[in-house]
């Protein structure tokens, strides 16, 4: 299993996890004790991170199978304790799942960029499709300045390249 340090050393993986769990979550990942299983309260005590943040991070990671727990019951009190461990070995599966969604969104955006002609207000920096620009006599609906043609060629080119790269990475023919 990859260590958390290895996982977090990849800038893209780090940015991905940061988006999911935020500053405090990343802090927990960095300080998560090596090996073994820990309750949320133990983790809060060992890392000095607020218990609510610890719980929130663990549940968020659990949703993507990046953390798992097992439950033990205290026979005397009947209380349940959840013991958590990280599953860094699932990171590429989680990324794959999210990248499938990203691919779908980018492909939809690509189609939109391909099928439309765009106009821009150079003052407001708002972009309009041809039908909307035509309806307002090629003037900005906000400031009434004339709209100019917006060339999306560079945007579309780099978008297509990235889509191709993701498709290859996901093994889509």
């Amino acid at each position: 299993m990859d260590s958390t340090e290895d996982t977090l050393n990849n800038p893209a993986v780090r940015a991905y996890l940061h988006r999911l769990v935020g500053d405090e979550g990343l802090n927990l990942l960095e300080r998560f004790p090596e090996g073994g299983e820990f309750s949320d309260e133990e983790l809060a005590a060992k890392t000095g991170i607020n218990l609510n943040s610890v719980r929130h991070t663990l549940y968020t990671l659990y949703e993507r199978r990046l953390a798992e727990y097992h439950r033990i019951k205290n026979n005397e009190t009947g209380w349940l304790t959840y013991l958590w461990q990280l599953r860094n070995d699932h990171i590429y599966d989680a990324l794959r799942e999210d990248m499938e969604t990203v691919l779908d969104k980018l492909s939809r955006r690509e189609k939109y960029e391909e099928e439309n002609d765009f106009y821009i207000c150079k003052d407001c920096h708002v972009i309009f499709t041809f039908p909307i620009a035509m309806n307002s006599d090629f003037k900005c609906p906000e400031c009434d300045q004339p709209l100019g043609h917006f060339d999306n060629e560079m945007l579309l080119k780099s978008l297509k390249q990235r889509i191709e790269s993701i498709r290859n990475s996901l093994g889509h023919a």
């Binding site: 893209a12 940015a15 990324l95 794959r96 790269s165 990475s169």
Partner: peptide, 12 residues
């Protein structure tokens, strides 16, 4: 997968 495909520069 290549996680770098989620970045534009260092923007996720």
């Amino acid at each position: 997968v290549n996680p770098g495909d989620l970045l534009a520069g260092d923007e996720l």
